[in-house]
């Protein structure tokens, strides 16, 4: 099977979520090839899991003040701060038959791409069920998956650098918990590629590209006009709406 790779690009939160859904639709209809994409969030954004409450997880006022987008994902999981300069996100979309049948097993298989990629930078990491990757015992990547009518989508982030204080101003952890002690405890549980050496974000991208494409027949490609048009519809009609983002 021939994969398409859409190289590292930047979009706003609503487009990033819309194009993922477009790919679920179009891979199912065999209108688009199985795709691996790499992206950043511009502006920075907070995404919440499908079953979370926006009001409960996110300081929406603070996001507005700092120009940070906030969006509900199609996938479950937790709230994530996607700093424009602090991480690379990937999505992989293909027929379910390309992956192990079980959801847990397929997380492990897809996450191996990240583990292999980080290894090219000399960073040892391992899969930590349900959906994390840890390096030196600390979380470096979080991942989430959905399946629709025979098509699997997994997206996830790999942390490049950490701004824990900013993360805490945007995510609603009760204010009294944002003490230095709490921040220290997150620093003890979370890490980033920058903690392992003086790597550029492009080096991280190169590493992830290598890890995800290992053993795959692929070519670089761009979004088609039809894909972009449909993403534009979903960006405005769904992911950018209060109805979707505040539905819980």
């Amino acid at each position: 099977m021939k994969w398409r790779v859409v190289g590292l690009e930047s979009h706003d939160a609503y487009f990033n979520m819309a194009i993922d859904e477009v790919m679920l639709e179009r891979v199912r209809e065999k209108l688009s090839p199985p795709t691996i994409r790499f992206y950043r969030w511009s502006p920075s954004a907070v995404s919440i899991g499908r079953f979370q409450s926006m009001e409960e997880e996110v300081d929406v006022e603070k996001c507005r003040e700092l120009g940070v987008d906030y969006v509900r994902r199609i996938t479950g999981g937790g709230a994530v701060y996607h700093d424009n300069k602090g991480e690379i996100t990937y999505s992989i979309i293909a027929p379910e038959t390309e992956f192990p049948k079980g959801i847990r097993e397929s997380y492990k298989t897809i996450c191996q791409g990240i583990i292999d990629g980080l290894a090219t930078l000399g960073i040892e990491s391992e899969f930590m069920p349900i959906n994390d990757i840890v390096a030196g015992g600390r979380k470096i990547s979080g991942n989430a998956q959905t399946r629709r009518k025979g098509v699997l989508l997994q997206h996830g982030t790999v942390l490049y650098s950490l701004d824990i204080r900013k993360m805490f101003t945007l995510l609603k952890v009760s204010k009294e918990k944002i003490s230095d002690k709490m921040i220290k405890s997150v620093e003890e549980r979370v890490t980033s590629v920058s903690a392992f050496g003086n790597f550029s974000i492009n080096q991280l991208y190169g590493a992830l590209l290598e890890g995800f494409t290992k053993g795959k027949d692929y070519e670089f490609g761009m979004w088609s006009k039809e894909e972009l048009e449909r993403a534009g519809e979903l960006r405005i009609g769904l992911y950018g709406t209060r109805r979707w983002n505040f539905s819980r």
């Binding site: 899991g49 499908r50 079953f51 979370q52 409450s53 409960e56 199609i74 996938t75 479950g76 999981g77 937790g78 709230a79 959801i103 349900i130 959906n131 989430a144 998956q145 959905t146 399946r147 629709r148 819980r248």
Partner: peptide
Amino acid sequence: IEILGDFFVHPE
């Protein structure tokens, strides 16, 4: 009743 959280349910 509303059930919320950071879990996964398939299909959502």
